[in-house]
Nucleic acid binder design. Structure first.
Lengths: 346, 346
DNA sequence: CATGATCGTGTAAACGTCAACACGCTCGTT
DNA sequence: AACGAGCGTGTTGACGTTTACACGATCATG
């Protein structure tokens, strides 16, 4: 016994067919579907039976046209395969689902063009709200498109000139803490590999890095700062370049989960031992940091909480909250592990 | 200068407003939007200008109602935070996007109830097609719901009584290969931790495991087989239990990416050294396997290709292909690394 | 120069739903 | 018995599109 899934597209039953089958008018069916109280129990039962029988599901398009809401939230992430964003989605889901909203995730693969395409699709589809992580704060087309949305938008960890609620993560202090610790141990040349300065995390990490050195009265060697892209390949390439340079760093900060992967791989391929040959700090993937040997010090943040907070902000707007944009800042933790030690030659 | 995103819901411009602004009828605007050739170039230009001016995006709900298609594909995955499924989505995307379809991912968190909810939502939203990974083949409600879809559905790596195209991954042979190799090295007690036998991968892995032992003329100790759930916690718990038992295995097969994580963690926490104290084989996360020390032998498959193949099958159906269900089987590779060795006490 | 084909455009119906309104029925009240 | 209130149900426009059809203008043809 097997169930058919006709490619030809079996027509879905409509409210009219349910009405006919139950021997009532479409208005009554609609009231039953909408859980309106104004229906006699006996009628309701008959309608419910007809619905079940026919496998009726109300047509969302028609419903959306009448009610101007779709109970759909769009979730824009730079990269599906990155656990960091997936966890955010998971957190948001836990808040939105109980309210009857469906969260649909869409991955831009860090392409501003695809971000615009997503925003337009979301607008076409009358999505009720959006949670977005942009891949480039300077992409004006994306920002204009957000302005046109007409529904509440929550922005994650970006600084964009848009009147939207934002959930920020703290990056600067944690980098400062880590760099401070490395300086304490005697490191004088520390390499930083992180995201582009076109997004807040990249900018803040570089800023925190510089501040830590300046505070210690040390000069900043720009050669040691690599802040351009967010990918394992980039992390690997820059780490390799740093470690094979004329005057290599004695510690590497791989700030970003993909970069962390790539950088760690580069260190391994060079046959270097952590922390004897090189001190190493990762970010955003506490699991990986704890699985390798020795465990790696990691800058961590609770992404599920980010998702919950973002969903909370959105939900308030969906309920009609009218007030100036709100900003939430969530903290980071430095999970100290055995991957950092005093530099060898010194 | 900042852009507004009114919570109140700025009304979106409609085709009527564009028509008025361009001084033509709505029919003409629709023809321009639909790229029909029957429009004078001068008129087209005027309409296009009006559209751009107003930031017009056609209302997908209204369009869907007329045309019965939404250019939307639903993608159901058991777990967003699992890279394996994310990669499938990525692969599918590369095939579907050029055809104008948008892929929206939804995570069921391995809950059959949420799978049903997703399927109903997809039907309500008139999605044009679905790619689904079910979390339990025995959930009849889910299967019935698939039968009602009325649009093509592609199933990933599950055996369900549904007339749908399927993309399978090969599991049995690769497990046999690995177990054979371990036997060769002298292992006689091998622990298997994998997914529930309610899904094909779990079943096939257990079957492959048994076959390898039987072929070698060895008895199968059911205590060594743990096939119940797919999560890091489960992997950790069962691995711990196996390794602290009265007669522990000398090798562990952690078949499943989350299970791999958890199992590896359990081994670490017990302070065991791979491969001296215990031989270890993982699955589905070649990256992790290569990052830890020593690198871990892993059963790997190309999930992006799975996604591409699934999307290809779906696309054919969307184009109207009418033929019996097709099945594609994709292979697995055993990436041999230094985590397996001859057992110590023997 | 009449005829018909072609072209560009406008008009109107339909898609499936919701909700305002209307209507008839049953009660309780006087 | 008459009346109004309230309840359950049916009817009827919208919502924004697409598309078949209609129509006038232009143009080539005999």
């Amino acid at each position: 016994m097997s169930v058919k899934t006709p490619a030809g597209g079996r027509r879905q039953p409509t409210i009219h067919e349910v009405a006919a089958s139950a021997g009532v008018s479409i208005g009554t069916v609609s009231r039953v579907a909408g859980e309106s109280p104004r229906v006699a129990p006996e009628t309701r039962a008959r309608v419910l039976a007809a619905m079940a029988e026919l496998g009726y599901q109300p047509n969302a398009a028609a419903r959306a046209m009448r009610t101007n809401q779709t109970k759909t939230i769009g979730f824009l992430i730079p990269d599906m395969t990155n656990q960091v964003f997936a966890r955010v989605a998971q957190g948001a889901e836990t808040v939105l689902a109980p309210e009857g909203y469906m969260l649909f995730a869409f991955s831009s693969n860090r392409s501003p063009a695809r971000e615009v395409a997503f925003l337009q699709a979301a607008r076409q589809r009358q999505m009720d709200g959006l949670i977005v992580t942009l891949s480039d704060e300077t992409a004006t087309a994306t920002i204009e498109e957000i302005g046109r949305m007409g529904v509440p938008v929550v922005v994650l960890d970006r600084e964009v000139p848009v009147e939207a609620d934002v959930v920020y993560s703290e990056h600067m202090q944690s980098i400062e803490t880590v760099v401070g610790q490395l300086l304490e141990l005697g490191h004088r040349r520390i390499g930083l590999v992180t995201a582009s300065q076109n997004i807040r995390p990249g900018r803040d990490r570089v800023a925190g890095f510089r501040r830590a050195l300046e505070r210690a009265g040390l000069p900043v060697d720009d050669w040691l700062i690599r802040a351009n892209r967010q990918s394992a390949e980039y992390g690997a390439a820059e780490t390799h370049d740093l470690l094979t340079g004329a005057n290599p760093p004695t510690a590497i900060l791989a700030a970003g989960s993909d970069i962390f992967y790539g950088a760690l791989r580069a260190v391994r391929l060079l046959g270097l031992t952590i922390p004897d040959d090189i001190s190493f700090v990762g970010a955003d993937d506490p699991l990986l940091g704890d699985l390798v040997y020795p465990p790696i010090t990691v800058i961590d943040r609770d992404m599920v909480e980010v998702g919950r907070q973002a969903a909370g902000l959105l939900l308030d707007r969906l309920r009609g909250l009218d007030m100036p944009p709100r900003r939430i800042m969530l903290g980071s933790n430095v999970l100290l592990r055995r991957s950092i030690a005093a530099p060898r030659h010194r």
